[in-house]
């Protein structure tokens, strides 16, 4: 082949985008002029690829979130529903557990060890925060110490705190567990209390955040 290859084709060949790479390769083996162009582009490409990138500020993400926060009408970022629910729940449970150590009486704990996926259309907990359909809840059956007697709501709170609700993602099981059936495995009063509790928290949090 006597005619030189267009630089555009050599450039595309370098990028693996040539329309006929075989022909380009064959030509480069015999044409010193085109081979030199190819070598120069390859070197330039290597230098460009080696350009060091900027060190992004350590607070880059924080500044992005702050900008979003400032632009949010309510002046605060709407947190995930489970954070809005779990934080006050666990805080309350922590207080109750601390109090429980003052009354070291062992009682039967609620028999709960349930991992539940919350379907968005679950009628039992159809509240505004139920849209986070991938959130998992975990409850335990081995609360060691509880005050006696305790209200149903306090039982639930203690059970929640005892199994680290914040680590809920680490306890995810394969497959979905219907929340309705999960509630069915609890004793009736506990399940009812749980639904009421979460609904109440949701109402407060939703009013505040939305």
């Amino acid at each position: 082949m006597n005619e030189h290859i267009q630089p555009e084709e050599i450039s595309a060949y370098l990028d693996g985008e040539a329309s006929n790479p075989g022909a380009v390769q064959k030509h480069l083996q015999t044409c010193m002029v085109c081979a030199r162009v190819h070598m120069q582009i390859a070197k330039l490409s290597a230098h460009l690829g080696a350009l060091s990138g900027p060190e992004v500020s350590h607070d880059f993400a924080a500044r992005v979130l702050a900008s979003i926060d400032a632009a949010t009408p309510s002046g605060r970022i709407a947190k995930a529903w489970w954070v809005r629910v779990a934080v006050p729940l666990a805080a309350a449970a922590g207080v109750l557990l601390a109090l429980s150590t003052l009354v070291p009486v062992r009682v039967d704990a609620p028999e709960l060890r349930i991992i539940a996926e919350v379907p968005a259309d679950d009628q039992a907990i159809k509240t505004p925060y139920a849209k986070a359909a991938d959130t998992t809840w975990l409850f335990a059956d081995d609360a060691e110490v509880q005050p006696e007697p305790v209200a149903e709501s306090e039982k639930v709170l203690m059970a929640l705190a005892d199994v680290h609700i914040f680590d809920h993602e680490a306890y995810r099981l394969e497959g979905d567990v219907d929340m309705q059936s999960a509630l069915g495995k609890m004793d009736e009063s506990t399940a009812e209390t749980l639904v009421v509790l979460l609904s109440d928290y949701a109402k407060e949090e939703v009013k505040a955040a939305w």
């Binding site: 990138g53 992004v56 880059f60 979130l65 529903w81």
Partner: peptide
């Protein structure tokens, strides 16, 4: 769905390539 931790993860994934692109 309101999970800001997920959005923060997106920012962390792409903050450097996007900033690099903008700088160039």
């Amino acid at each position: 769905d309101g999970n800001m931790a997920a959005f923060a993860e997106l920012v962390r994934r792409y903050e450097r390539p996007i900033t690099h692109f903008c700088q160039r």
